[in-house]
């Protein structure tokens, strides 16, 4: 489709929805924030590199940290703070002073555009009835399929969709997807599903020996994984902000 070019515009402003990582602050203590940041970033340095970040102040009780200091701290960690999310006037003033944008409350997630039904015209009527009778699932993305082993030191990111690996993921390898992750082998490395914040994302694997599993930023290290689930076929998902692992057998 051609864009509407009545005049030669140098840009177009449009409303857009982006998924951003939000830092939900519970404490005003810069030092402890610094310490936790160092730890979290060490888990997935590439993922956090130059990541835009919203500072969410909705859940903090009482005093908030000096936002300019916090901004500097985040920048020191190679993050890019873009805005503050808060409904309180005082917070918004502080954000304004620190040169940060202001977002109010978590607006309900936008409805994704429905993808037009692309059934072929040659299909028989019977077929169409079947299609109509089936519940309507919206397919967002076909995702990325990797047919070979993901080796130590390799990093694969399926941006905007699912990642399927038809082999094993080695210790020291990192796989990320904005959607689900499916591994038809052994997961020994680190897996980050819902990497842009989708809390419905899941990680499926044929044998769980992961160094780390993470969904929308909620992670669990190998040593914290219940041994009943190790070396098993599992699905890892998020429920009420808690990472849960279920057996698939």
């Amino acid at each position: 489709m051609k864009p509407n070019n009545q005049k030669q515009d140098s840009f177009r402003l449009r409303g857009s929805f982006f998924t951003l990582s939000a830092m939900e602050l519970y404490s005003a203590d810069i030092d402890s924030i610094d310490e936790q940041l160092t730890k979290n970033i060490a888990l997935a340095p590439k993922f956090f590199e130059k990541a835009p970040l919203v500072i969410d102040l909705e859940k903090i009780n009482g005093k908030i940290p000096n936002l300019s200091t916090l901004k500097q701290l985040l920048e020191k960690h190679n993050l890019i703070p873009v805005a503050v999310c808060s409904s309180k006037k005082a917070h918004q003033t502080a954000a304004h002073k620190a040169g940060l944008g202001i977002l109010t409350a978590n607006a309900p997630a936008p409805q994704a555009e429905t993808i037009p039904n692309q059934t072929k015209e040659t299909e028989t009527d019977d077929h169409q009835k079947e299609v109509e009778a089936a519940p309507h699932y919206e397919v967002k993305n076909h995702g990325l399929v990797i047919r070979h082993a993901v080796r130590s030191g390799q990093q694969i990111y399926a941006r905007g969709g699912d990642l399927t690996v038809l082999a094993s993921v080695s210790t020291g390898a990192e796989i990320l997807a904005d959607g689900n992750i499916h591994i038809y082998g052994t997961l020994r490395g680190r897996a980050f599903a819902g990497a842009s914040g989708d809390t419905d994302a899941m990680i499926f694997c044929h044998s769980l020996q992961a160094e780390l599993v993470s969904i929308a930023g909620h992670y669990q290290l190998n040593e914290k994984i219940d041994s009943n689930y190790l070396n098993k076929r599992t699905v890892t998902h998020l429920q009420d902000e808690r990472l849960l692992i279920d057996l698939l057998d």
Binding site: A149, S152, Q154
Partner: peptide
């Protein structure tokens, strides 16, 4: 074994 795995990744890429 870990380093061998790494070099296999490099061979593949």
């Amino acid at each position: 074994v870990r380093d061998s795995d790494r070099i296999l990744g490099i061979l593949a890429s």
